[in-house]
Amino acid sequence: MSEIKTMQIRDMHKVSATQKVMKVITQILLYTFLGLMALIVIFPFYWMIISSIKTMDEYRRAIPTLIPEYFDFRNYVEVFMSEDLLLGRLFANTVFVGVVSTVLSLIITVLSAFAFARLEFKGKNAMFAALLATMMIPGELFTITNYQTVNTFGWMKTFTVLIVPFLVSVFYIYLLRQNFLQIPNELYLAAKVDGTTDFKYLWKVMIPLALPTIISITILKMMGAWNSYMWPRLVANDDEHRLITNGLRTAFTNAEGVTDIPVQMAAVAVVSLPLFLVFIFLRKYIMKGVSRSGIKG
């Protein structure tokens, strides 16, 4: 009797031991797979950085070096001094367009979201539904006519053309309205009784409470300016107004189509750096904003 019992206990231990081994093996497999995938994901960034500090001679070797023989930062000097890229100008243009369009866009978004969330007016729901419906239409459909429109307005090759057509984002209005709706209406009614104006209530109560969403919108909008390519190329691709991505794509390729890759990689690294800095410091807001949007920029 007691023998059977000990055997049973031994069997139970055996089972838990195999389970433990299985668990360890699963964990090892999980970490191996994830580690491998993470390496693949990161590798292009690594390749960009090490290529940017190689000389062309080292770069074109048959057997590439995974760690440069010596760190040569002349490519970066060339990027900053280049007549081909005019990096300072591109940076200044992009930051200017990014900041102005973000500020104006936020004002418009906050005012519209407030009207849709708190004020009553005829046709509110119908109008909101119509707005959401426009989100399904691909942007290219608007671009064809907007190109004519800005031409008629005489806006070609100005900063206005890079800023104004994209100030209203239906998606951001939707996002902020949802956030505003979560703020209890009692707060608004109480403020009304106290004689607070709508504008003061918006500024003092709603904006602070919806700040995380507003920060998310700000970052995504700035990233949008930094990454925009097609529209700027169509309407303002002159030296005075060119934005950073447009400048980058064609730089450091000579007339025969031969590219100085290490210098090009240095330029790519310089352009990518601000995005990484923003990501490191504001990761939480970016990931939150993105998970609700699915829209890049």
Binding site: A38, P44, W47, L248, M265, L275, K296
Partner: peptide, 26 residues
């Protein structure tokens, strides 16, 4: 999780140029 999110915060033209360099023959 952060590493896997990294490609999102990039400029698709800029990093496309890095991929081109990785596949490119000289």
């Amino acid at each position: 999780q952060t590493i896997f999110f990294l490609p999102y915060v990039t400029n698709s033209i800029a990093i496309g140029m890095v991929f081109a360099a990785m596949f490119n023959m000289i």
